[in-house]
Design a protein around this nucleic acid. Structure first.
Length: 742
DNA sequence: GACCTGCTGCGGTTTG
């Protein structure tokens, strides 16, 4: 050891404050220094008693930044239950962190236990007998403990001093975050004190929002550890490919019979094949179907070139075994490997460092783009390399809106500009409060027995779940009673009804999200993964899956198993999807400013540059700088340049006037089969007499999207929609006026 | 524009 952690002055100050056994562990690691984030976190956690959020990139050593001081605090303390609860969103992440903490905790004589569905039962049983040390757990396993073993939960959580929440950004939106927030609150109630919360995250857009999630009552007291690290150099290219006019199905495989017209997609595959071979890379392909198609094409190119295949798929329907094979190939790093993934490789599971990241299609959010980039250039002095590949249609001379604007090129340029400005979208409002509350009402009754309505409200409606009123909560309880989820005893307390008993007794109660029925694909006894049952299959069906081609040899309908054998051709399965979130307002504004700028970024290839100019010429010709309403063919386009929330409200407002409206591209909507004069007349009407939010909410359809929404009344779902859109509706008259001026 | 995540307790069989 040439340079000890003792040598620097700042470093030694932080180092000196750690427990001697923690110091010994640091020596054993041969670390030359502590990282900036670790030094700051040590001081912040040891100097104060407030909650802390540690925001630093994935490779910066956030886990140690939290645990070195936390373990120094809890070592040598009297035992009486767990000292630290670490909550992670993924089992794979928990397993990684377990390996990182094992040695350190052993030195301190603190047991560390993985607690999730695939973790060994024996260690859990041992912990229950003598609860102390650290547990690494998923939200669902906390839920199961509270429902099934409330007595054990009190013993485990009664003495907690710290709760660490990893990948905090993953919990800031969506039902799973609301669920975890409720579980943490329930842990505090049964522990009769509030353990300190430490949140870890690499991509936070809005610190205020993260602080409010960590400590809803006193967000201003949450301390940030946010060292300004030197960002690695970014090497960037946007490459565009225009399809040949004869290409009908660019994602199909038929074009292999017509090699004289390779599709744009094929040329993208060619470029990936030559550029990415012989190093480790990640390709984010956007959808599972595209992951499969691309993996298959790249494997076939390897076969044709007679070289070993280095390209492997990774997505949520692939079996754990296949996914882990790729992850460990990437991590071990002895064989060059490129992973072709959906969003599955975005979160922090340990796959080592990759040379470059490729993105197929324009980025849809800066949060996700940043998370992806964080996977490249992780070694000191190495650049981050990003390639964005765009496929654009061939446009005939009579091509229409919105195609002529070449939106995906403009959107990609806008994304890069926002990346450089360090913009990240804040999390958006939640649509699933009713489902989460319903779930938690059932769960709390299991944990604590029959309760009066006021007690349920008091315990569950708080923090991120507080946007529901008492009358609305009562409405929820009434519809739960109507469905026999709950019933009221003569003394007024609420207990489980027959349906409630059945639902809470089932294995799938603990998670707040649902999974659909799926076929399981098995090849010679080995599970490859699953495909939705909506795919029509029969003996002899051919399919691309796991980057390879298969034929269905036999199928077992009741157990939903497909036995497959290798085959020479196939098509990728269809996966169901719900549709996207839309771009943030700021992103749409940046797109508009790219249209209006003359700047030609050097990171565009020749085709992308040409398409950007083409899009700008169309923008100019349509006079979009000053015009917001464009009649085109039978339809009329409204260029709103607003975020998805405002667009949705205007879309619904126009629908209440009897029009058919659809989204054209982000920020632009299309009124079908209607001329400009009619649209203007309706907008004038709306401007003078804007509809109120409750009228609009009556027109909203498909409000039942979350797990238990079937038990929630229409009235409540509409009222919650109205809550979320109230602000956007108040802008309605003003926006109409602005459009009309053009 | 789409993607992702998670799970009990028990009865059975196999293995050391």
């Amino acid at each position: 050891m040439t340079n000890s952690p003792h040598s620097g002055s700042e470093v030694s100050k932080a180092f000196d404050r750690l427990h001697p056994e923690v110091q010994r562990w640091i020596w054993q690691q041969n670390w030359e220094t502590l990282r900036a984030v670790q030094e700051q976190a040590i001081h912040t956690i040891l100097d104060h008693s407030s909650d802390v959020i540690i925001a630093a990139s994935t490779a910066a050593g956030k886990t140690e930044a939290a645990f070195l001081p936390i373990l120094s605090c809890v070592a040598d303390q009297p035992q009486g239950g767990l000292s630290v609860l670490y909550v992670g969103p993924l089992k794979a992440l928990i397993n990684d962190q377990f390996r990182r903490l094992e040695d350190l905790c052993q030195l301190l004589d603190l047991p560390v236990v993985r607690w999730h569905g695939d973790a060994p039962q024996s260690a859990k049983a041992r912990l229950l007998k003598n609860p102390h040390g650290i547990a690494l757990i998923t939200p669902e396993s906390i839920e199961a403990l509270l429902v099934r073993r409330p007595d054990a939960a009190i013993k485990l959580f009664g003495g907690l001093q710290f709760i660490v929440i990893d990948e905090l950004h993953a919990f800031l939106k969506g039902p799973r975050g609301l669920h975890l927030s409720s579980l943490l609150r329930r842990i505090e109630r049964l522990a009769r004190h509030r353990p300190r919360r430490i949140g870890l995250s690499a991509t936070l857009g809005d610190f205020t929002q993260a602080k409010r999630w960590i400590h809803p009552e006193e967000p201003e007291h949450v301390r940030m550890v946010d060292p300004i690290g030197a960002a690695p150099e970014l090497q960037l290219q946007i490459r565009a490919y225009v399809d040949h006019p004869d290409v009908k199905d660019p994602y199909g495989i038929e074009d292999e019979a017509a090699p004289w017209h390779p599709s744009a997609f094929d040329r993208i595959a060619d470029h990936l094949f030559t550029r990415l071979r012989s190093s480790n890379n990640l390709v984010f392909a956007g959808s599972r179907k595209r992951v499969e198609t691309l993996s298959d094409r790249l494997r076939r190119r390897s076969e044709t070139a007679n070289v070993p295949n280095e390209f492997y798929p990774h997505h949520g329907n692939l079996s754990k075994e296949l996914r882990e094979e790729l992850e460990s190939r990437l991590k071990v790093g002895t064989l060059p490997t490129t992973g072709i993934a959906t969003t599955t490789l975005e979160l922090g599971i340990d796959i080592g460092s990759v040379k470059s990241v490729a993105q197929i299609g324009p980025p849809q959010s800066l949060a996700s783009l940043r998370q992806r980039l964080g996977r490249s250039g992780r070694r000191q002095g190495e650049p981050t390399i990003l390639r964005i590949y765009l496929r654009e249609p061939y446009l005939a001379s009579d091509a229409g809106l919105p195609a002529v604007l070449r939106f995906s090129v403009v959107q990609s340029v806008a994304a890069v500009k926002l990346l450089i400005q360090k913009f990240v979208e804040p999390a958006t409002g939640d649509t699933t409060i009713a489902t989460v509350l319903l779930h938690q009402i059932l769960s709390l009754i299991c944990e604590r027995g029959a309760q009066r309505a006021e007690r349920l409200f008091e315990q569950l409606v708080h923090g991120p779940l507080n946007s529901i009123s008492k009358p609305q909560f009562a409405d929820l309880l009434r519809s739960m009673a109507a469905a026999a989820l709950i019933e009221q005893s003569p003394d007024g307390s609420i207990m489980l009804g027959a349906t409630g008993e059945r639902i809470t007794g089932r294995y799938d109660f603990y998670a707040i999200f649902e999974t659909d029925d799926e076929w399981r694909l098995v090849a010679s006894g080995r599970t490859l993964g699953t495909v939705p049952v909506s795919n029509a299959v029969a003996i002899g069906s051919i399919i691309i899956f796991g980057g390879q081609r298969w034929r269905v040899a036999s199928l077992d309908e009741p157990s939903k198993v497909l036995d497959v054998v290798a085959h020479r051709s196939g098509t990728p399965p269809e996966f169901e999807s719900a549709g996207g979130d839309g771009l943030h307002k700021r992103f749409v504004e940046e797109i508009r400013s790219v249209f209006e700028s003359d700047d030609l970024p050097s990171y565009l290839d020749a085709t992308a540059r040409e398409l950007l100019l083409e899009g700008r010429r169309a923008y100019l010709a349509l006079e979009l700088k000053t015009r917001s309403i464009i009649e085109f063919g039978p339809d009329t386009f409204l260029f709103l340049w607003e975020g998805s929330e405002v667009c949705e409200v205007i879309q619904i407002a126009l629908m209440t006037a009897g029009l058919s409206v659809e989204r054209a591209v982000d920020g632009v909507i299309c009124v079908l089969a209607t001329d400009e004069r009619t649209v203007r007349a309706i907008l004038t009407q709306m401007q003078n007499n804007p509809p109120d939010v409750d009228t609009l909410s009556d027109f909203v359809e498909n409000l039942r999207t979350a797990k238990f929404d079937e038990f929630v009344s229409d009235k409540l779902l509409k009222a919650l929609w109205a809550n979320r859109h109230r602000n956007a509706v108040t802008e309605l008259a003003e926006i109409c006026a602005r459009i009309m001026l053009s």
